[in-house]
Structures are given as structure tokens and as C-alpha cells.
Design a protein around this nucleic acid. Structure first.
Length: 493
RNA sequence: GCCCUCAUCGUCUAGUCAGGUCUAGGACACAGGCCUUUCAAGCCUGGUACAUGGGUUCGAAUCCCGUUGAGGGCACCA
């Protein structure tokens, strides 16, 4: 039997990273089993429909490197893959259930239902449909009048769900509500549509969030009514924020495109997500896995049952590791959009600044946690810096006069360098520090502050080379003036 | 309120199904050190966990029951 799994999002907004983790599990399972991964859009709630949501979902999956064998954009033999285009099927199947006596028509108003629930809550009971229409003679609710179709849940007995991760879960039927299957707008509810589609589309394994456990018996009852074999279930735990609550916006980025914009690599996010609630086990201590390694190792039965906390720290570490593993050429390519977005370079990069960018890449590579970090690390190369406060250009344990002298000596030195390259600067600069009786760090930190405007920067000589001789000398001149002015002011009083 | 699920370092986890090799292993984070022009990266060292009570057993992180805690569900939402 060929494994067929699906991801069935509703287009109501940006996909949540916790749901995407579940998609990763599904995709990994499908690829490993040489099965099919189906994308189906569950847009049966017209009130919550969001226009671009489909593009955001497919774009997000593609960004993460997950493809689908059937679904929107790719087609397939079981289409259409958008539920709003399948309403006739659901209506027909709902009528079948009515004809079989497994479901019934109900014309109770939303107001009445709310009153019933309110009264039940007041009595401390579980809110449930009171069964008014269930007990009316068949045909009393006219098929031509607005109504819903409800599932006629048995009042006794139990329904058992077999979950490959959790074993058998037993539900008492009497605690189950008479679920609405077809709404008054003739659209199906999730429960009806998912059962029919999963069956028709030949879905063999349903892997999804454990928030679906409680409602599964209602759907199982439908499988039973239709005489269909339910799929294999695997309910995976939810993803929590650092405070132990369901992961949400207040914890940081939650949608895929936010991670992209913040400078996370798709392969790093994929790696991280695969390891959130799953581990290869067998004493495996590796943390960084290629997509192929994950496909090979993934074991659906090893998914952890406890909810996992999303750790931005760990994601940052993994992302940094992936960045360090990139070739310089590749890193440059990925960095350009971030420089451009920050307005540091034009979006269509002029050829003359490419050499500068190429110089910068090796300087920042092992310092980046995210691609976006490059902005703060290198902005001084592309924009003017503030005039440094005098204390920043006075070396540690040095006087202003000594510092001024040092700056002037550096200027002379840099003017005289033939090839303005990092490697040509280091030795003379160290010799200069020696001559001045300074430690290298004392001298370099003055120059760093003067030239980059930062106390912390990429390696100094590389930064100077990227800046170029003219800008470097100009900034040293400014520092020189700052010091001269300060000394003069001191002398005067 | 009712129903369901879950429980190893701060976090992700290995070990649990086939009890002893676990004075519980790894990673992230944290602390200290080395390297070092700053910051990183890299290397070394360190602290921190089997929720709790009872059983079963020669022996329990591992099996059973209770308790506690956490999460989820109880819509003409998905």
C-alpha cells in the first residue's frame, strides 16, 4: 500500500510555525515511505476566508523546500483540491446519511441553540445540542427550508480511536454532541468534508495536532456509517512558547515569512523544526542534518508526546551553523537582499560595489546568527558615521596627546601603503604600536572607533580595506580634529 | 464543570516498548578558562533533571495505581 498523507490548511491567514512543524513531519514521512504528499485547501468557512492566504501557504512550503505531489498548482487525479469546489460531493454524502437515518435535518435557530447552551452552562453541564429536531418525525423539517444536517450520534456505547503514538483512546458516545455536518449555507463543516475527502483521496495516514483528538470520535462514527476504513492516526503535540503557553505572536516570529524576513535560512528552519519533538535516537548525537539525512532517519513512531517549547536560542545556533557552512559565493547571494532592504545598497546591485561586498562576506560569516545581522555589522561601510565622542578615540590607559599622535602616525602609515589591503596593513600597524610603546589592542581600538564608529566591529584591517583608503583617511581626520579640539579646550582651561 | 492527552537538566532531547551496562548521555543557553586587535567562531572545564506518593521486583527513569502539575477539546471555526 502506498502511503498518502496530506496537509489541509484553511486559508485564514499566515501559517503558524507550530502547524508547519506538523507539515514537516508529514512531508518527511511521505518522502521516506516513497508515498504521496497531498495539499488540500479547506476553505469551507466563507466568513474567515483571507484572499492571499493560499499564496502565502504555498510560498511558505516552497521556501522550506517542501513540495507536494497533488494539490493546488500541481493538480492530480483526485481533484479539485480546494474544498469550496467540491460542495456538491459533500451535499450528496450528507443526504445519504440522512437517507440512512444516520443524520437528520435541524432548523433550530442560532439564538435558540445559544439559549440552550447558556442554560446548560448555568447548571454546570457540558453544552450540547438538546436533540429537539433529532426526535421530530422524519420530513417535518423540509429539505427546501434553511436547515442544517446533524450527525445522529448513538446515545450509548463507545467509539475507539487507534493512534499509532498513543494507543487506543476510548470515548463514550453519550458525551458526544450531534455535530453539524452541513451548514445552512449548504457548505460542509470541517468534520464532514475531511472525512469524505480523506476517504476519496485515499489518505492512509493522518498526522496532525493533538487538538483534534477530542473531536475525532464524531468523524469515526461517520466512517462507520459510510462503511469506510478510517486512516491511521498520529496526533502530535502542540508547540509552546517559552512561557509554556501555546506559541503565539507575543513570543516572537510565528509565521514562516517572518522567519524569512528575519534572516533565517530555510534549511536551518527545516532542520530545527524536524528536531522539535522528534529525535533520531539510537544514541545519535548529531544536531545538523541534511534534508536527505532527515528523510532517511525520520521515524513516525519516535515523535515525542510531550508538548515542545520553541527555542529561539537553539534556532539561532542552528542558523549560525548553516550560515558558516555556506560558500562565500552563496552567502553573498543571500546577503544582498538584506543589505538592499535596509537601504544600504541599491536593490539592483551596481557592479562597482560587488568587490566591497565580497570583501565583507568572509568578515561577517562567522559572526552572523541571522542574515539580517549583516546590516548592523556592516552599515558603517555604506553610510556616514557619527562624529565619535572624544572618550572613544582616547586609548585605554592613554592620554589624549598620545592618542592624537597615534592617529597621526596611522594616517601617515595608511597613506604610504602601496596595496591597500588588509594583509599589507597588519604587520606595519603592529610595528607602529610597538614603536609607540602601546599594546596592539590599545592602538587598534582607537582606530576601530574612529573608522567604524563602533566598539565592536568585524576584523579591523578587513573593515578598513572594505572602506577604502579615502573614507578611512577622512574618518581618521575627523577623529584627529576631535582630539585636537579636546586638547586645546583642556589647555585653555 | 465535563472529556481527552502528556510528564528526564532552564530549553530540545537520548535512555522507557524488550527493568540491571544510568553515581542518567548529547545539544542549546549559562558560568569559568584558552585562543585573540574588539566581537564572533573554535577548543577545554563546570553546574543543573528522572514531578510526587504507593505498589510489583533481588533490582525501576524504565512496569502498575493514585496524586499533583501542564496542555488541549467541549461552535452552523478549522
Amino acid at each position: 500500500m502506498t502511503v498518502r498523507v496530506r496537509f489541509a490548511p484553511s486559508p485564514t491567514g499566515h501559517p503558524h510555525i507550530g502547524n508547519i512543524r506538523t507539515v514537516v513531519f508529514n512531508w518527511l514521512f511521505a518522502r521516506q515511505q516513497h508515498g504521496q504528499f497531498v495539499l488540500r485547501i479547506e476553505d469551507t468557512d466563507r466568513t474567515r476566508y483571507v484572499e492571499d492566504a493560499l499564496q502565502v501557504i504555498t510560498g511558505g512550503l516552497r521556501w522550506l523546500g517542501m513540495d507536494w505531489d497533488e494539490g493546488p498548482e500541481v493538480g492530480g487525479d483526485y481533484g479539485p483540491y480546494v474544498q469550496s469546489e467540491r460542495t456538491a460531493i459533500y451535499q450528496e454524502k450528507a443526504e445519504e446519511l440522512v437517507a440512512m437515518g444516520k443524520a437528520y435535518r435541524c432548523d433550530c435557530t442560532p439564538e435558540r441553540l445559544e439559549q440552550v447552551r447558556e442554560a446548560q452552562r448555568a447548571r454546570g453541564e457540558t453544552p450540547m445540542y438538546d436533540g429537539r429536531c433529532r426526535n421530530r418525525p422524519v420530513g417535518e423539517v423540509s429539505p427546501d427550508q434553511p436547515h442544517v444536517i446533524r450527525l445522529k450520534v448513538p446515545r450509548e456505547g463507545v467509539t475507539v480511536m487507534r493512534d499509532i503514538l498513543r494507543g487506543d483512546i476510548v470515548f463514550e458516545n453519550r458525551l458526544l454532541d450531534d455535530q453539524v455536518l452541513l451548514k445552512s449555507d449548504r457548505f460542509p463543516t470541517y468534520h464532514l468534508a475531511v472525512v469524505i475527502d480523506d476517504h476519496i483521496m485515499g489518505i492512509t495516514h493522518v498526522m496532525r495536532g493533538d487538538d483534534w483528538i477530542s473531536s475525532e470520535p464524531k468523524r469515526l462514527l461517520m466512517y462507520e456509517a459510510f462503511g469506510w476504513e478510517p486512516p491511521v492516526y498520529a496526533h502530535v503535540p502542540l508547540v509552546l512558547g517559552t512561557d509554556g503557553k501555546k506559541l503565539g505572536k507575543r513570543h516572537g516570529a510565528v509565521s514562516i515569512d517572518e522567519f524569512r524576513r528575519q534572516g533565517y535560512l530555510p534549511e536551518a528552519v527545516f532542520n530545527f523544526l524536524a528536531l522539535l519533538g522528534w529525535a533520531p535516537g539510537l544514541g545519535e548525537e548529531q544536531e545538523i542534518f541534511t534534508r536527505e539525512e532527515l528523510i532517511e532517519r525520520f521515524d513516525i513512531t519516535r515523535i515525542n508526546l510531550a508538548p515542545a517549547v520553541f527555542s529561539y536560542d537553539k534556532l539561532n545556533w542552528i542558523n549560525g551553523a548553516y550560515i558558516r557552512a555556506l560558500s562565500q559565493e552563496e552567502l553573498l547571494k543571500r546577503l544582498i537582499p538584506f543589505w538592499a532592504d535596509a537601504g544600504l545598497i541599491p536593490p539592483d546591485v551596481p557592479v562597482e560595489i560587488i568587490p566591497t561586498l565580497k570583501l565583507l562576506v568572509p568578515l561577517v560569516q562567522e559572526r552572523l546568527k541571522t542574515l539580517r545581522d549583516v546590516v548592523e555589522l556592516t552599515d558603517f561601510v555604506f553610510t556616514d558615521i557619527a562624529i565619535p565622542p572624544v572618550e572613544k578615540v582616547i586609548g585605554s590607559k592613554m592620554t589624549a596627546e598620545q592618542s592624537l599622535d597615534a592617529i597621526r602616525r596611522v594616517q601617515t602609515l595608511l597613506v604610504g601603503i602601496v596595496h591597500f589591503e588588509a594583509t599589507a596593513m597588519e604587520i606595519p600597524m603592529r610595528r607602529l604600536a610597538d614603536e609607540l610603546g602601546l599594546k596592539a589592542g590599545q592602538l587598534f581600538s582607537i582606530v576601530r572607533n574612529a573608522v567604524t564608529g563602533k566598539e565592536v566591529s568585524p576584523p579591523l584591517f578587513g573593515s578598513i580595506e572594505a572602506l577604502g583608503r579615502a573614507t578611512t583617511l577622512k574618518r581618521l581626520e575627523i577623529a584627529e580634529e576631535v582630539l585636537a579640539k579636546y586638547i586645546k579646550a583642556q589647555e585653555e582651561g
